[in-house]
Amino acid sequence: MAELTHFNESGRARMVDVGTKATTERVAVAQAKVFMEPATLQAIQRGTIAKGDVLAVAQVAGVMGAKRTPDLIPMCHPLLLTSVDISFKEAPQPNADGQCSITVTATVKTTGQTGVEMEAMTAVSVAALTMYDMCKAIDKRMSFGEICLLSKSGGKSGTFMRERS
């Protein structure tokens, strides 16, 4: 198991010193699933949600979330992000609970001394929250989860790829 780096010798929280780390291209991909009633997905697809184009707004919110990560997560370094891409994949077939879903995927890139995993995870979380906010008036059962890091590359720890289940 890896050593926890966000604690100093006294056991207190600290921001890790990345000053001596190599500058490399770093990429992280994360996802979240938003679960909803079939009628909600249809309203999103038809563009009839009263607050506007749900996926367009969620896409912008995800980008903003990635950019604001160090304002939300105390030990994250402010990073110069070189790219944030948010995409959506609809699953119109209801699951066992009778709900459809939209998977939000964020790909975040930088060239720097620390990774962008938290920025990718924040991006999908903020996009999912935005989708909920825009649709809650018609679907109180909406939920989201399965938020996870799918992959990351760059840096000393190298490449990580989540095994698909």
Rank of each mutant, 00 (worst) to 15 (best):
residue 145 G to P: 01
residue 76 C to Q: 07
residue 24 T to G: 02
residue 61 A to M: 10
residue 115 G to W: 13
residue 58 A to E: 11
residue 162 R to C: 05
residue 72 L to M: 14
residue 104 V to Q: 04
residue 57 V to E: 10
residue 24 T to S: 14
residue 113 Q to E: 06
residue 155 G to Q: 06
residue 151 S to P: 03
residue 132 Y to N: 02
residue 98 G to H: 06
residue 81 L to Q: 11
residue 66 A to Y: 11
residue 122 T to V: 11
residue 110 T to A: 12
residue 88 F to V: 12
residue 92 P to A: 14
residue 58 A to R: 04
residue 103 T to P: 07
residue 74 P to E: 15
residue 95 N to T: 05
residue 55 L to W: 01
residue 103 T to K: 03
residue 76 C to T: 09
residue 68 R to M: 13
residue 93 Q to S: 09
residue 92 P to E: 10
residue 105 T to A: 08
residue 93 Q to H: 02
residue 43 A to L: 06
residue 80 L to N: 08
residue 24 T to Y: 06
residue 99 Q to V: 01
residue 30 A to Q: 05
residue 54 V to H: 12
residue 107 T to I: 13
residue 47 G to F: 12
residue 28 A to C: 07
residue 157 S to T: 12
residue 122 T to H: 06
residue 161 M to C: 07
residue 69 T to P: 04
residue 41 L to I: 10
residue 153 S to C: 05
residue 117 E to S: 10
residue 129 L to N: 04
residue 57 V to H: 01
residue 23 T to D: 04
residue 89 K to M: 10
residue 60 V to E: 06
residue 77 H to N: 13
residue 98 G to R: 09
residue 55 L to Y: 09
residue 148 C to E: 05
residue 45 Q to M: 10
residue 129 L to R: 00
residue 101 S to Q: 02
residue 61 A to D: 01
residue 133 D to V: 13
residue 48 T to S: 15
residue 81 L to D: 09
residue 74 P to L: 15
residue 107 T to Q: 11
residue 141 R to M: 02
residue 26 R to E: 00
residue 132 Y to K: 04
residue 99 Q to A: 12
residue 101 S to A: 14
residue 100 C to T: 14
residue 74 P to K: 11
residue 81 L to G: 08
residue 146 E to L: 09
residue 40 T to V: 09
residue 62 G to R: 15
residue 117 E to A: 04
residue 97 D to N: 13
residue 72 L to Y: 04
residue 127 A to P: 00
residue 91 A to E: 13
residue 121 M to N: 06
residue 24 T to A: 13
residue 61 A to N: 01
residue 20 T to V: 09
residue 80 L to C: 12
residue 137 A to P: 00
residue 133 D to T: 00
residue 78 P to R: 14
residue 27 V to L: 14
residue 23 T to I: 15
residue 34 V to P: 05
residue 98 G to P: 00
residue 132 Y to D: 07
residue 34 V to S: 10
residue 27 V to I: 15
residue 104 V to R: 02
residue 51 K to A: 13
residue 69 T to A: 10
residue 121 M to C: 12
residue 155 G to T: 07
residue 39 A to Q: 12
residue 68 R to T: 01
residue 122 T to K: 10
residue 33 K to S: 14
residue 87 S to I: 05
residue 52 G to F: 15
residue 73 I to Q: 01
residue 157 S to V: 08
residue 160 F to M: 06
residue 25 E to Y: 07
residue 125 S to P: 00
residue 98 G to A: 04
residue 97 D to V: 08
residue 81 L to I: 12
residue 158 G to F: 07
residue 84 V to P: 03
residue 26 R to T: 04
residue 35 F to K: 11
residue 131 M to C: 14
residue 82 T to E: 12
residue 58 A to N: 00
residue 36 M to W: 02
residue 126 V to Q: 07
residue 108 V to P: 05
residue 87 S to C: 03
residue 162 R to D: 01
residue 150 L to A: 03
residue 64 M to D: 00
residue 95 N to K: 03
residue 111 T to G: 00
residue 41 L to H: 10
residue 69 T to G: 02
residue 44 I to V: 14
residue 51 K to P: 02
residue 78 P to C: 11
residue 110 T to R: 07
residue 93 Q to W: 00
residue 103 T to L: 08
residue 129 L to E: 15
residue 143 S to G: 08
residue 42 Q to E: 15
residue 135 C to F: 02
residue 64 M to Y: 11
residue 161 M to P: 01
residue 156 K to R: 15
